[in-house]
């Protein structure tokens, strides 16, 4: 199977083993710009590994990953890091905000890693914090804000570089349903408005309901439900 035409990020026949455990065993994936795809499946099925491979954090043992016409697995670590800095955004379940930095500094961090001057980076960060309704937290540190607020700060940070692909790994996992839904609403709205693709790893149906379609990962193999039906 080849990547569907027009896909921004596509993976074929991915295999990845951690020691004796086979995390991915021939997984496939593709996503178009502006699309939100939920990756579902039981825990331990390889969802997170698939996300890490797609984001170039982990290199698969075999298989190809194509991003925007370029072969991701052929890139050097430095190139992939640079790609992650400039074209990808990340939201994780927890533990991702630097506890010592203030919220606005956390949001500005990816820009600063790209070499944007501090003032400018923080101005851009503030714009995104306003969109995610957390601009009043700018001077606070992550330890002083609630989980939902922290997660919105994290979403702001993932979007601040204007990424083309947003990777979200259980972004609402640590939140109650009201906060979780609010975060999902803001995240998908923001992504759609910038035409970013969102790879959303979740095991919650109500979170997955914010996606356009879902794929299911089971025992390291993926299943694209849209094509099956």
């Amino acid at each position: 199977m080849t990547a569907p035409a027009g896909s921004l990020l596509a993976a074929e026949r991915l295999r990845k083993a951690y020691g004796p455990t086979l995390a991915l065993d021939g997984a496939e994936f593709s996503i178009h710009p502006g699309e939100v795809v939920a990756v579902m499946g039981p825990s331990g099925s390889g969802k997170s590994t698939l996300l890490h491979c797609l984001a170039g954090i982990v290199t698969p043992d075999s298989g190809t990953i194509t991003y925007d016409g370029r072969e991701l697995s052929a890139m050097s670590d430095a190139r992939r890091s640079a790609l992650r800095r400039s074209e990808f955004g990340f939201v994780f379940q927890f533990g991702q905000l630097v506890p010592e930095l203030t919220c606005v500094e956390n949001v500005a961090l990816p820009l600063r890693l790209n070499g944007t001057p501090r003032k400018e980076a923080e101005r851009a960060a503030l714009t995104w914090m306003e969109r995610l309704e957390v601009d009043d937290l700018r001077r606070k540190r992550p330890g002083e804000v609630s989980g939902g607020q922290g997660q919105r700060v994290a979403v702001a940070r993932s979007l601040v570089t204007g990424p083309r692909v947003l990777f979200a790994d259980e972004p609402t996992g640590a939140l109650d349903s009201l906060n979780g839904e609010r975060v999902m609403e803001l995240l998908t709205d923001a992504a759609r408005s910038t035409n970013a693709a969102v790879v959303l790893v979740t095991h919650e149906a109500r979170v997955a309901a914010y996606s356009d379609r879902e794929i299911v990962v089971r025992d390291g193999r993926s299943r694209d439900m849209e094509r099956v039906v």
């Binding site: 149906a205 309901a209 879902e214 439900m225």
Partner: peptide, 20 residues
């Protein structure tokens, strides 16, 4: 049997997307 579950989930999600 897993297929049945996946198919059903997909169907459910379709409804849930509309509701969402």
């Amino acid at each position: 049997a897993a297929d049945i579950l996946d198919t059903q989930r997909s169907e459910h999600l379709r409804s849930m997307r509309i509701l969402t």
